[in-house]
């Protein structure tokens, strides 16, 4: 289990993490989302032991990550920008990781070679961005990690390879109980794979729940109603097209339905909410909304 308790990190006076709390259960696929500059990459660098927090705790399995070789050897990390030694091939990097990660499996490496259509003797500097990502997954999965931390993992991959990689990850999660923490701006894709989601803003965790809880706690309603709606409805966002109004309301679906029905609308219906919509409307409440700017 990954636990981040009240972590603060400051860069030259700028508070990048401001008392952040985060909790990832074992075997979960946790989607970390947030606007640019929210602190997602910063907390990932704490979780991989690169940064040391100013205060708070960053724990994996109850132990601090920083300078903890035992814990770090169970974590594989794929950063947004893949690093490899200049002029090294995938095979060279494999030999290096084999010497560094005690659980590294050459058998898995060779098996994954069938999946990734890459020449492992070719210098990595010649690979495209998408091929580099594939190579990173190849090497990371060969390390047989218990925790996989991914920063914008499928950025640059073609749709087929995306599906392929997610399938491999799902397999690892289901067979070995691997915990995956993934930071991405591609919310539609996260929605398909994540079972837990955390939304960060300004170095803090705004919401952190399982995806089903999150989707159950916010309702999108379309209705036509001439009478005023009950004041107890927590409406996050309103828009209208002709007489049809679309409301985003915080609350359980049954409770919201009951309240709206009490206003006797001419017509109303609840519509499923996507993760992207939840993200937009939740952050709209903290002054992070799409601004309508008209360029002259």
């Amino acid at each position: 289990m990954i636990e981040v308790n009240n972590v603060v990190k400051t860069f030259d006076g700028f508070r990048a993490l401001d008392g952040l709390n985060l909790s990832v259960p074992n075997g979960a696929i946790y989607g970390l989302v947030g606007p640019n500059g929210a602190g997602k990459s910063t907390i990932i660098r704490h979780l991989t032991g690169v940064y040391r927090q100013d205060s708070g705790d960053v724990l994996v399995g109850g132990q601090p990550v920083y300078e903890n070789v035992e814990i770090k050897s169970r974590i594989a990390y794929i950063p947004d920008e893949i690093f490899h030694f200049p002029s090294a091939s995938i095979r060279d990097m494999m030999k290096f990781y084999r010497g560094v990660y005690p659980q590294f499996s050459e058998k898995i490496y060779h098996e994954l070679g069938e999946v990734f259509d890459l020449d492992d003797t070719m210098p990595m500097r010649r690979l495209s961005k998408g091929m580099l990502k594939q190579a990173a997954f190849w090497l990371a999965l060969s390390c047989r990690p218990d925790i996989l931390i991914l920063d914008e993992p499928v950025d640059g991959l073609d749709p087929v390879m995306r599906r392929q990689i997610w399938a491999l990850l799902m397999d690892d999660v289901s067979q070995r109980g691997v915990t995956v923490l993934v930071s991405s701006h591609n919310l539609r894709e996260l929605e398909d794979v994540c079972d837990h989601v955390g939304i960060m803003f300004n170095g803090k965790m705004m919401i952190q729940r399982s995806l089903s809880d999150l989707q159950d706690n916010i309702v999108k309603v379309q209705l036509v109603c001439d009478t005023p709606l009950p004041a107890s409805l927590n409406v996050l966002h309103t828009s209208s097209s002709g007489r049809v109004q679309t409301l985003i309301i915080r609350g359980q679906q049954a409770e919201v339905t009951q309240l709206i029905a009490s206003a006797k609308p001419l017509f109303f219906d609840t519509v499923p909410l996507s993760l992207e919509e939840i993200f937009i409307y939740e952050l709209g409440g903290v002054d992070y909304a799409v601004k309508n700017v008209i360029l002259s």
Partner: peptide, 14 residues
């Protein structure tokens, strides 16, 4: 930054 974020994440003490 690219190299340090990978190398410092390796399971090797400073």
């Amino acid at each position: 930054t690219r190299s340090i974020y990978t190398i410092a994440a390796l399971p090797i003490q400073r």
